[in-house]
Design a protein around this nucleic acid. Structure first.
Lengths: 396, 396
DNA sequence: CCGCTTTGTCCTGCGACAGGAGAAAGTCGT
DNA sequence: ACGACTTTCTCCTGTCGCAGGACAAAGCGG
């Protein structure tokens, strides 16, 4: 199938495409209410979009008291690929133009195997999704990687947990392989975009999205746009000091947040607790599996294990301590907690909330919701699709 | 003298006015190079600006190889009032349309005396400046207050150090008194705008401006625009925790940065050091004055007093600790240190730098300048003038 | 079948604007 | 002193974007 290579010719068309993406199919009249354009001009632009195939007319809607309207919708055959590369697994999903997920695969994989091995895997998963019939090809792909990215070029820069990726031309390479436009971003930023598009952060202009996975990162949204910082490393809060002269961290400093919490630290602490005999529950799991992961702590906690609950509470408190500072500084309208450890659920959330509400300024916390992300593993891939969609739906 | 009530009629005119403000007088041809408009359209807009009196033609420039150009400049009679209300003093200045300071007054005053008393003082100072001949009236005024502001309305909200100002309609009241448009913002944001317009932060898009006065605040600039947060309290970093379970703070929490540093904390620590006999230098000053201020510590330090130097270094280290976290989070392109305690100079700066470079991520600090503001007390009033100028030079 | 409503199309006229032609006002070389 | 060239600025004309009215199409209810 031939892919849509067309792009909106002007800002009006871009605006219309985004309205259709975020608001679903719509009549000309309804679109006219949402955009500041005369009916005539609107009709012209829609006709042009129909000609280029970016949108399609799709039957008549029910009457609302008068002439029935034509439904205008985004090209039904348009397919986007969303890729979310985590430290220990890869998510790949296919969406339509409205960013609805049509197929989603997840595969464990160590990002440290390097870009070549990971891309092989990603392309294989994309092929599987194509074979399953949800897509015949891709009009664009968004991809998130667990580290800082030089955004305009789509190249990771000095990523601590994936050194082999430093300077690897992710965007160019993947674009070549897939034959479609590709955009690359930090995985945390994509999670923020996902929750903004389809999750808890809809209609919030300024918010933070804290992702607690193997490490800890934070997506920053200012005025509805992701803020990436001067060198693309904004939101890298895992190595903010949570305890002066505290535990040594892999980064070389002491007392970093990631030395106390996150998937890696939690697993390490849990194994220590199991060996020290502080938790029979965890010891049993360690015996069985040979090693422990965050999910084991989650399971032990829901089984009522006190040590597991303590580990979660302590981690949440440390995290809350750091978030409290960020809340005072940034004064967000919402804080979203997400990532792999959301399985720790409300124990974690309660600890974070307690600490933030206790420590931040009342004016900043007065009306501040702190909530779990509602998209789970779909947040990253949705954000990735959103990223490339934003790119495709901007004037050429 | 009649004031300019005219406002630019469209975005082009606004753009031209800002070019003239930031780049100084210019010929039509030079303006044409900086704006994406045809010569004809440009001429039309400039003619309209000349008609409304917003700009003036001001003689011929030297030839550059051909016909001499007419100099176009902003209305030479335009006058802006910049007001910077600090915790313990008030600055009032008059600028021309290019934001050059034509007159500047400073007066000690306690902000806690409340808005009525402070405004009386401000109006008196403005009258003095008028009487000195630098202005016959004001076309607009910008005012900074040491606390959070609901920006669109120009009203302080729950300001900790000036409780009597809560909800006082600063913008409306001052606009009534002065008979011109008024904009209100946090004093720290104005300092950031000042350094951005005429100081060290020219041409930097994303930066932080840490103001260490009586308290400690931080101006946040994202993409060239001041970020104020959801409730206007963004940048309030004085109560970020610098030490878990540390010193009690006036805010009710423990270990806040302001409990360790800032004008108030420094004075308190210096007096304690004087009484404990740790510093003969400080003790002598305490004897003489009855109390100590940050300036005394600065003086003692430049006299070589070891205790004073220690106090500054310790404060700088605490501040650097907090800034390090913000740098990791925000990844700015520049950090500006300013405010009353800049008198502490390079001892302070060195301590902050050491801590930030030691603690933040290399990627975020790699190319990060940390510098003292270069405008001193003029930063606030320049920023205030810039604030109202931005308002006046936007389409009506 | 007749009003009334909603939706969509066509047409005309206005205003924004680009870009060429040319006038005005210089410099420089001979 | 004069002509060639440059820069600056003005004027004019044609094109394009666009708003808004008139009108056609299509549906509803009585």
């Amino acid at each position: 199938m031939r892919r849509m290579t067309a792009r909106p010719a002007n800002a009006h068309q871009a605006r219309l495409l985004r309205l259709l993406r975020d608001g679903g199919p719509n009549s000309r009249a309804q679109l006219g209410d949402q955009i500041d354009l005369s009916r005539s001009k609107l009709a012209v632009e829609i006709d042009r979009l129909l000609e280029t195939g970016l949108v399609a007319a799709d039957g008549l809607a029910a009457s609302r008291g008068g002439r029935r309207s034509h439904n205008i919708r985004l090209a039904p055959g348009l397919r986007l690929l969303g890729v979310d590369i985590g430290a220990t697994s890869v998510d790949v999903a296919v969406t339509n133009a409205e960013l609805e997920i049509l197929g989603h695969l997840n595969q464990p994989m160590d990002v440290r195997e390097g870009p070549v091995a990971v891309f092989e895997q990603v392309l294989d998963m994309a092929a599987k999704l194509r074979a399953s019939g949800v897509a015949e090809g891709f009009d664009g792909a968004g991809i998130g990687v667990p580290g800082p990215v030089r955004f305009p070029e789509g190249v990771p820069v000095a990523p601590p947990i994936m050194p082999g990726w430093d300077g690897f031309p992710v965007r160019e390479a993947l674009s070549q392989e897939l034959g479609c436009p590709v955009m690359v971003d930090n995985d945390v930023n994509l999670m923020a975009m996902g929750e903004q598009h389809a999750g808890v952060a809809r209609s919030v202009k300024d918010f933070l999205c804290v992702k607690i996975g193997t490490g800890i990162g934070c997506g920053i949204v200012v005025g509805g746009e992701v803020y990436r910082g001067t060198t693309g490393s904004a939101g890298d809060i895992g190595h903010i000091q949570a305890e002066p002269d505290g535990r040594p961290c892999a980064c070389g400093n002491h007392g970093c947040l990631e030395a106390y919490f996150g998937g890696a630290a939690l697993a390490r602490d849990a194994e220590a607790a199991a060996r020290d005999g502080r938790s029979a529950e965890l010891a049993a799991r360690l015996e069985e599996m040979g090693s422990l992961a965050a999910t084991d702590v989650a399971a032990a906690a829901s089984a009522g294990d006190a040590t597991a609950l303590d580990l979660i509470r302590e981690g949440g408190t440390r995290t809350g301590q750091v978030i409290a500072g960020l809340v005072s500084f940034f004064n967000p309208g919402l804080v979203v907690i997400g990532g792999g450890v959301t399985g720790l659920g409300h124990t974690l959330l309660a600890a974070i909330r307690t600490q933030v509400y206790r420590q931040s300024l009342p004016l900043a916390t007065g009306n501040l919701p702190i909530v779990l992300g509602e998209l789970g593993p779909a947040a990253g891939v949705t954000g990735a699709a959103r990223l490339i969609s934003d790119h495709l739906f901007s004037p050429a």
